[in-house]
Write a protein that binds this DNA or RNA. Sequence first.
DNA 1: CCGGGTTGGGGGTTTTTCCCCCATACCCAC
DNA 2: GTGGGTATGGGGGAAAAACCCCCAACCCGG
Lengths: 217, 217
Amino acid sequence: MSSIRVLIADDHAVLRAGLRMLIEAQSDMEVVGEAADGLETLSRAGEVESDVVLLDLSMPGPPGTATIERLVRLVPSPRVLVLTMHDDPVYLRTALLAGASGYIVKKAADVELLSAIRVVYHGGTFVNLTRPGEDQRSDEVRHVHRDSPAAGQPKPLSQREVEVLRLLAQGHTNQEAADRLAVSIKTIETHRKRLSDKLGLKSRADLFRFAVEARLL
Amino acid sequence: MSSIRVLIADDHAVLRAGLRMLIEAQSDMEVVGEAADGLETLSRAGEVESDVVLLDLSMPGPPGTATIERLVRLVPSPRVLVLTMHDDPVYLRTALLAGASGYIVKKAADVELLSAIRVVYHGGTFVNLTRPGEDQRSDEVRHVHRDSPAAGQPKPLSQREVEVLRLLAQGHTNQEAADRLAVSIKTIETHRKRLSDKLGLKSRADLFRFAVEARLL
DNA sequence: CCGGGTTGGGGGTTTTTCCCCCATACCCAC
DNA sequence: GTGGGTATGGGGGAAAAACCCCCAACCCGG
């Protein structure tokens, strides 16, 4: 009897508790751990073997895609099922590119979630979006995987730069962002300068628009 | 033997399922209904009597504050416990002003949530925020709340004020907003002052958060 | 070892915000 | 018609924030 070992990674404790009850209520599943951010997810995944990692893309710390990439490089590697509130094909695409095996929105019914866990456990790919489009792109996604530059005009942003960008786009002053990240205002100014150099984002309104397009908000 | 009748209002079905299991597992609580948006919440609340409405502020449809205001006007009126992912005193303030009896973030542990339900059911006010800032403003909120529990709704914004709010929330400076609306910067300053007076939205980050909650962006 | 990222600083200017005061004009309700 | 709320605009000054140049240390990966 091998039940599906699930690791829950979500920053909302209430949701984790709910998911745990839901999963533990299944005869063929068990919860082997919980994590509240990306780093904790990786360390938990290193401590306990799991078959499926139920992962929220939007957690504090490193971007969800980076967490996925590291998870699937583990040995033995768990399958990653992304559980997110973003009903968005762009998110889906980046998640699959990073190595996720499934993508389900939080709006989905619980039976769907359980079904998705079983599908990805058995090696399948589960995708659940209410918004249409991008259907057969999934295949294409596999091929593109990790090699195509995809018109790399904008220089890639570091994680830290993305964090700073997000805070500033949300209307925080340099000082407020510095406090949030527990660094000096000078550091924020430096990051902001780099954002300006790399992407031409000068005013706060520029930062806001870019953040919206990049779906950072 | 009267158990606490809870109505769950959240647009994430998975979370609802989790909450239902969590609550049903308590001997003194029962779930009498679920809703996925503001309108459904109101109709459900009209159909079944409930003691506590567990409400997510960020749902499709009307703003969460409007839903709260209508809920507390029902007879008999349920107590509203806001369950949100926004760990933010500004959100707290608007929720309490709208008539909520409690505010708990989704990051909170499940035992805290259960405790909060019991507190508001017994007529208390439960507030849970991890962020310490904005102290004097919090006091103000509590004061207003004590004086006029459900009455002190935020004054409605004029159309123009909403426009200004939107532009400023998008990161535009006063001058940029003035240019957009073809008015003087002094006019923007005046509107901004009104926003500050009416809703306590002082910093640009405050404006941003409120605009997000009000779905203006 | 070099380059990029992250951190932090000195020291200055310019921009923006914020605060008080004020005014006119419109519309709507009492 | 008088008062209240909204929208518009202003003067002037203090404070805060942003912006600009320079610099430097540390760490890490190729």
